[in-house]
Write a protein that binds this DNA or RNA. Structure first.
Lengths: 220, 220
DNA sequence: CTAACTAAACTGACCAGTCAGTTCAAATAG
DNA sequence: CTATTTGAACTGACTGGTCAGTTTAGTTAG
């Protein structure tokens, strides 16, 4: 069970020591992330073998187990890795509060760019996210919460300035927008490559424009 | 590769003879659909064995191969089966054109009910839908087209009566609504069981209300 | 009587995880 | 400056097990 490697095993290391120890390791992990993102996005977590991942990364199978504790662990870290990238992009949108609707629109645009750039991650996410008893259940819950918080605060920004339909719960709207980003992004890549980024953003933004009410602001 | 069964094999029968031949077969197929829908929804197509499906359906493994040519074939027919049910519900909404927005709302409600009743089908759909080279690719393309057509005509119904934002392409909106139904439905079941049907419908309907413009109708 | 189904054994491929051994750059010693 | 040691990083053959699909001889029910 325990990976009793001859040397110290970085497999178990959560996140710490990012500067001192690793020499080749980080480059190797990066290659493994890229290779497995690609393969797993295409054929699913269960449909890809560790050997394939190792070969695609130009590394031996043992190296995968040296760097990660298990296939499952690799995928968990892969999920975190992808979410880190997406989060960074979403947070790059300055909430200058000039117009919260514009901020929202840019966030959705960033999300669409991310889906276009990492479609395999998006596929992995939607493939595994809603499985009921799954390894990664906790991972998903945590990452989902982080992402929804960002979207939620953008919605709050809008609700603070515009009058807003009280019949629409913030939580459901978060979910709808979040989900629409993934689905619209994936659908564009899979079935409608001719669709533009702007069309996609506009379609998702429709729910925000439907959320703000047509009456003039109720002057807080 | 070729399924050379001893007895006459209904395995290859696409859709024809639904009345003449089968005596026990239909009941068995039904049981197999239910069992595999459940299992595959939970653990994914690749994560479930044919033996498990057979046992769960209270049937022998041979029967699975008697009724279906292969695991892959079973899943393809399972997809069609689920879409048939969903389509029937969507089409049950009378397009009385009294208010196309109300019709749209009821359609989304029907979709939410379906997701609540067959969450495993929804999981199967989102898990496999966007895989790039997959068996079932053609099946998905066809079924997706059928479903989008129904939603599209509901959108057209709205666009025929209300003034509508030309910046939002019908295709992207179809996709966004279609996808939101799956994602919101699944999220409700997985992460937010306290969310009501109405909240979910309202969140998805927001995109329709954002699609119709705030100016008074342009009087066709 | 025959289509539908059973039960069980079997094949051949495939795969996650293991482990004994190799490499090599940097540290330490002479 | 050279020799030796250390250990992290990596290798790839191997193991124990699983699984899709097949086959066969017999049973059940319409």
């Amino acid at each position: 069970m325990t990976t009793s490697q001859s040397g110290g095993s970085p497999a178990g290391s959560g996140d710490a020591e990012k500067k001192l120890r690793p020499a080749r390791t980080n480059a190797t992990k990066q290659k493994l992330f890229e290779a497995s993102m690609e393969l797993i996005g295409e054929r699913g977590a269960a449909g890809v073998t560790v050997d394939e991942i190792a070969t695609a990364a130009g590394v031996s199978k043992g190296t995968v187990y040296y760097n990660f504790g298990s296939k499952s662990d690799l995928i968990a870290q892969l999920l975190r890795h992808g979410v880190d990238i997406l989060m960074a992009r979403l947070l790059s949108v300055r909430d200058d509060s000039a117009d919260p609707l514009a901020a929202m629109e840019e966030m959705i645009g960033q999300a669409m760019d991310f889906m276009a750039e990492y479609p395999s991650f998006a596929r992995l996410w939607v493939s595994e996210n809603w499985r009921t008893p799954s390894e990664w259940q906790d991972t998903f819950a945590e990452l989902r919460g982080r992402l929804l918080a960002v979207i939620g605060s953008a919605i709050d920004g809008v609700a603070a300035v515009y009058p807003v339909d009280p019949a629409v719960s913030r939580g459901s709207l978060e979910t709808a927008i979040f989900g629409a980003c993934f689905v619209v992004g994936l659908d564009r890549q899979t079935y409608n490559p001719e669709r533009t980024r702007e069309q996609s953003v506009a379609a998702i933004m429709a729910s925000m424009r439907g959320y703000v009410m047509k009456q003039p602001p109720a002057q807080a």
